[in-house]
């Protein structure tokens, strides 16, 4: 028994073997295991434990995935804070009214309008300038991705147009420039899947 590798060392040796920690001591221990039937047997038992551990973890995860009604319930009860951002003033028709819209709602509208265009995905969007001061000129900064094979020039022109129209419709912002940076290209499938996220039966 004394000539064999202590069990704890054997277990740690297996961990090191996985993590690629191959010190001289590790190699020596490995050599011993290789030539010692008892230690080999014990190592194999530890390896079986690893396999059964993986089976257990996979099985329990699959069990949760196979009936996801708990997840539907949980997600439908999940209330996420929207990122409201700044308050953008709107003209009130009565003197005593104070009307505002949130920056977050304007950005969401820009994203929707932009992504109504086939070939475009809006990655990020920012309102640059003092949106809280009425009629102050501001810029809209959009980072977009364009579908492979489509014309970047055409997509950006049409994207700018749709965003401009939407902002005129829903806000009173004094938009000076809409700057679009195309950072990425994407496939048709990725675009469909991304746009389908909203249409999924589980969408909030």
């Amino acid at each position: 028994m004394n000539t064999h590798i202590p069990l704890e060392t054997l277990s740690n040796w297996l961990e090191d073997e996985h993590s690629g920690n191959h010190s001289p001591q590790h190699l020596l221990t490995g050599l011993h295991i290789h030539h010692c039937p008892t230690c080999t047997q014990r190592l194999e038992a530890l390896q079986r434990l690893e396999r059964v551990t993986n089976d257990l973890v996979t099985e329990e995860e699959n069990k949760q995935a196979s009936d996801s009604s708990w997840l539907d319930t949980m997600l439908s009860n999940l209330v996420l804070e929207t990122k409201a951002g700044r308050s953008i003033p709107l003209t009130a028709h009565h003197e005593l009214d104070t009307l505002t819209q949130t920056e977050g709602s304007v950005i969401a509208a820009i994203r929707r309008a932009g992504e109504s265009l086939p070939g475009a995905l809006v990655s990020r969007c920012r309102l640059d300038g003092d949106v809280e001061a009425p009629r102050t000129p501001i810029n809209v900064e959009i980072t977009a991705s364009v579908r492979e094979g489509s014309s970047v020039a055409d997509i950006t022109r049409e994207l700018r147009e749709r965003v401009r129209k939407e902002l005129e419709r829903i806000s009173e912002l004094n938009v000076e420039q809409i700057n679009i940076t195309v950072e990425d290209m994407h496939s048709f499938d990725i675009e469909q899947a991304t746009k389908n996220l909203k249409d999924s039966p589980h969408a909030p």
Binding site: E61, S68, L75, T82, K83, S123, R124, L197, P204
Partner: peptide, 18 residues
Amino acid sequence: VAGDQYAFQALIRRHAPA
């Protein structure tokens, strides 16, 4: 991160069983 809750839910749906 850009504020798309649908994308967040899809992400959660993928990893929630684990």
